[in-house]
Each structure stands twice: as structure tokens, then as C-alpha cells.
């Protein structure tokens, strides 16, 4: 079965993007930049995605879905610089966001410059999930510790002086997706594409079962998703330009 229509892409958008890049060096997504080279990499099935791709895409999701907050890929790196937990390094990164008012918080995590996984914080249910396209228990303990410490520190810092009850923060449990049985990633290139796919579907309130169904019962979902990302990013830049024009007009 081909991927469902909701995650199809527009060939016309890809063409428009490619035409645009003949005369321009980059596209801008909020404060993120994707150069022509990065767009080529995004569309090349053999190239690993970089922080530029993840951050531009996640930034777009933040604008489209106010009920979620997706951190940039450098957040977890900064939080754990030199293997040491460092809240102060990221304290101001949420100056414009109250993560405790969101439904879902997404944290992309890069390991050893070779693998991307997505930590999903279900803020109402107070639990953490690790969406790793290769499955397994790697890093579960450290992610659990670091994210729980962060939540505690962030709560203390942002709620300070707001006359809220200083509640004792219970440790949130961590569950690993694709833990046993089949895992969705069969190649050696696409974990970055997977976390973008997970992020968007979770932001659009898909249930886990629906996501698994799309992944396991349709063909070439992730292969196509690179084009989906490029076309979504391009369409997003066009909407932003229109919105800005309207403001000026």
C-alpha cells in the first residue's frame, strides 16, 4: 500500500523549491536556515540528516502546532555538555515558552554524531517515551535521569514567585517504543527522517497505533518522507511570506 494521503507530498512544491534555489542560496524557517546544499542532502536518500534539517523542521512544527513544543537538537547536547548535567546552560532557552502549559514536548537527541532519537514528554500524563527507530534500551537510564532533573529544575525556576504550591516532583517513568519485535528502520541512513515523521504525527495528535499502522502497513513511507519534509518546508516559507506581506499591506 502507498503512504496515506495525509502524508503525501506535492511534486509541484518540490519543483518550485528547486527553481527557487537556482537563484537563491537558502530558505529561512523562523530563525533557522537551510542552505541549497542542505536541501539537496535532505532529498538524497543516502545522506544522514543534520541538526539544520531537524531544527528547521521542528521550528516549523512549533509554529503550526501551538499545543506542542519541540526543542532544538542542541538543547539536550547543551543540557549534558561533557557528560555533565547543566541546567544553567539551557535555563533561558524557554524564556518564551512555558513547557508545562503544553500537551507534548519533543526533545530530539543526537548520540555520538551518528544516531537521532526522539524523547516525547506527555505533559498531562506525566510520562516520557523514547521513540527510537532502531529500538532497544540504549541510553534509557541517562535520558530518564537528565529529563527528570530538567523538569524539576525548570518547574522550580519558571514557577518561582508565582504563588503555586511547591509540589514534590514525582519522577516521570520512561517507556521505550519499538522495544521488542520489529523496528521500523531497516536502512543505515534514515533515523533523522524517522524522528521528523514521529514529531509531526504526534504533533497532529495521531494515536500510537495509527503511527505504527502507517509505518508497518504501507510501503516507502520514510523514503517518501524526505520529499514530504522538503515540500512542507517550502510551503511554510510561502505562507510566512504571505503573512508578512499582509502585515505590511
Amino acid at each position: 500500500m502507498m503512504p496515506p494521503d495525509e502524508i503525501a507530498y506535492s511534486k509541484r512544491s518540490i519543483l518550485e523549491l528547486q527553481e527557487y534555489l537556482e537563484d537563491n542560496d537558502n530558505i529561512i524557517i523562523n530563525s533557522d536556515i537551510l542552505t541549497t546544499e542542505k536541501i539537496k542532502e535532505l532529498l538524497d536518500p543516502w545522506t544522514w540528516l543534520s541538526s539544520d534539517h531537524i531544527n528547521a523542521y521542528f521550528s516549523m512544527l512549533n509554529t503550526k502546532h501551538p499545543q506542542i513544543y519541540a526543542f532544538p537538537s542542541y538543547f539536550y547536547t547543551k543540557l549534558t555538555t561533557n557528560q555533565e548535567y547543566n541546567y544553567e546552560g539551557v535555563r533561558r532557552w524557554t524564556k518564551r515558552t512555558s513547557i508545562f502549559d503544553k500537551e507534548i514536548v519533543l526533545i530530539p537527541i543526537n548520540f555520538s554524531d551518528s544516531h537521532w532519537v526522539l524523547a516525547v514528554l506527555r505533559m498531562h500524563q506525566q510520562k516520557i517515551e523514547i521513540w527510537d527507530s532502531l529500538g532497544g534500551q540504549r541510553h534509557k537510564k541517562s535520558i530518564k535521569e537528565n529529563i527528570n532533573k530538567y523538569l524539576q529544575d525548570e518547574y522550580k525556576d519558571k514557577k518561582r514567585g508565582k504563588n503555586v504550591k511547591t509540589k514534590k516532583f514525582e519522577e516521570w517513568p520512561v517507556k521505550v517504543k519499538f522495544r521488542t519485535g520489529k523496528t521500523p528502520q531497516a536502512d543505515t541512513n534514515s533515523c533523522g527522517v524517522f524522528i521528523c515523521f514521529f514529531a509531526r504525527l504526534l504533533a497532529e495528535c495521531y494515536e500510537d497505533d495509527e503511527i505504527f499502522d502507517i509505518l508497518f502497513n504501507h510501503n516507502n513511507v520514510i523514503e517518501h518522507y524526505r520529499e514530504v519534509m522538503a515540500s512542507e518546508l517550502w510551503e511554510f516559507t510561502q505562507v510566512v511570506i504571505l503573512a508578512n506581506d499582509e502585515k505590511i499591506g
Binding site: S114, H115, R138, S190, C191
Partner: peptide, 15 residues
Amino acid sequence: IDVMVEQTGGCIQCC
């Protein structure tokens, strides 16, 4: 101002 190095990922090399 934080300076970060571009990150990439595709799969796990070894674990």
C-alpha cells in the same frame, strides 16, 4: 552566545 557544532545521524555505528 553558545557555539555548537553541526550534528548528524543516520544509524548506530556500534553499541
